[in-house]
Design a protein around this nucleic acid. Structure first.
Length: 387
RNA sequence: GGGCAGGUGGCGGAGUAGUCAAUCGCACCAGACUGUAAAUCUGGCGGCCACUGGCCUUCGGGGGUGCGAAUCCCUCCCUGCCCA
């Protein structure tokens, strides 16, 4: 069962308020989708995740295929049962790993580039037509990876990804794509886009389950390719649209790219922006018309000791700093999360500095609650016609 | 009282005459992290400045020998271990 309903469209932007109905539960949109790569929000158990106002998670095909293997998860009754998460659930297809274990690893870059031409010895374009990553082999049929666990070769293509995702049994699955790096030439991206589109067709064809499936738009920072990809993916019978790949060098460029893509999409389909979601990005992407977005920032930063706080503008506290040992207030005086109601900065800082895992847990809990509350307010703003 | 070992920057610990303001680790400070990497990466870390360089003050205290010492000599103080 899958249904998406737009409840309200903003008059001031492309922002919209919606509701996503899955077999496992309702999700109010716009919504953050916290990342549970290994079928867990690191440091939290499912009941705690729910207490952070999270209603949907995304797990990862590639990682769960490697460990423990989809057959164990299927035998356990599927991901929901396996991880005791009865709410909505997505699985990412493994397409991002084509980038992160491929060119991303070779060049030591993320999908958002902080390097600029001429600096750090990196030129703007390093991936040209015919370029090949060192550690994996991209073929028209799919991708040969080397297992990061034992070095064994393994093949993941559209068929494999869908079969695995069917066994994992999330409510929403993604088509297998190639996430291109931010240093790609137009020639390379064109080539990769061919593959991604071809794989999208195969994914639709081989899927037998009743799971909803989202196609993924690629095309990097190139207008023609983004538009072409958006039209293509939009024209296929996907239940929703994912937008992936790199989104330029600046926030302005990201907005521009989202506008190119979203202008081509049917309004009734949900749009999921893959891997973006710093606090400072959220309002912008929502205004661009994004309904769902997954991001590791709240959870990943938590494990670096960073708490996100602040009523109006984003502030970060680095609890590694010794000075917090003196502070007797909660992380955020305006936050009503369990952590802010019960623990103070001094103690959390101590836990982080002492490398106690509970510190990571408290920050993870707070950050997720904080992000979800932030987005709740954005939904409120759409409802009230403010954005 | 005697013997041995040793005292280096916040801590641990290199260096044992010039290339030493002094390797390195920890701690500390600053920055980074966007379809996850359980704690990572980058930079700084004596002071001052006209800061791709220069100046000043440092290697337990004091005094020597050298053109030149954290490094050699004398002396004092302190620490650890062993003997009495």
């Amino acid at each position: 069962m899958f249904e998406f309903k737009v409840l309200k469209k903003s008059q001031r932007s492309r922002a919209r308020l919606g509701i996503l109905k899955t077999g496992s539960g309702l999700v109010e949109t716009p919504s953050l989708v916290p990342v549970a790569t290994q079928a867990v929000i690191k440091t939290l158990e499912s009941r705690e995740v729910k207490e952070t106002k999270t209603g949907i998670l995304i797990a990862n095909t590639f990682h769960l295929h490697l460990k423990p293997g989809e057959k164990f998860i299927r035998a356990a009754g599927g991901l929901h049962k396996f991880m005791n998460w009865q709410e909505a659930l997505m699985t990412d297809s493994g397409g991002f790993q084509v980038f992160s274990f491929g060119f991303g690893k070779d060049l030591g870059v993320g999908k958002l580039l902080k390097y600029f031409p001429g600096r750090n010895g990196i030129n703007k374009t390093q991936i040209n037509k015919g370029s090949k990553p060192k550690f994996l082999r991209i073929t028209p049929a799919g991708v040969w990876f080397r297992s990061p666990l034992d070095g064994e070769e393994l093949f993941l293509g559209p068929r494999e990804s869908i079969k695995i995702q069917e066994k994992l049994g999330a409510d929403i699955i993604f088509s297998f794509d190639e996430c291109t790096p931010p240093l790609s030439s137009v020639g390379y991206v064109k080539e990769a886009l061919q593959r991604t589109h071809n794989w999208a067709k195969i994914c639709l064809k081989v899927k037998k389950s009743k799971q909803a499936i989202f196609g993924i738009v690629q095309g990097s920072r190139f207008k023609q390719l983004r538009q072409e990809s958006a039209r293509f993916i939009n024209s296929r019978p996907f239940d929703g649209i994912g937008i992936g790949g790199d989104l330029g060098l600046t926030k302005e460029e990201m907005k521009k790219i989202l506008n190119w893509v979203i202008a081509e999409l049917d309004a009734q389909k949900p749009r999921h922006l893959l891997g973006i979601g710093h606090l400072g990005d959220i309002e912008d992407i929502v205004k661009s018309g994004i309904d769902l977005f997954d991001c590791t920032v709240p959870t990943h930063y938590a494990r670096r000791g960073i708490a996100f706080v602040g009523l109006t503008k984003e502030e970060r506290l680095d609890l590694n700093e010794k000075s917090f040992l003196k502070e007797k207030e909660p992380l955020d005086g305006n936050c009503s999360c369990f952590v802010c109601q019960n623990y103070k900065r001094n103690y959390i800082s101590h836990l982080i500095r002492a490398r106690e895992i509970t510190g990571l847990k408290l920050l993870t809990f707070h950050n997720l609650y904080f992000f979800n509350t932030f987005i709740e307010k954005i939904r409120e703003k759409i409802k009230n016609g403010k954005i």
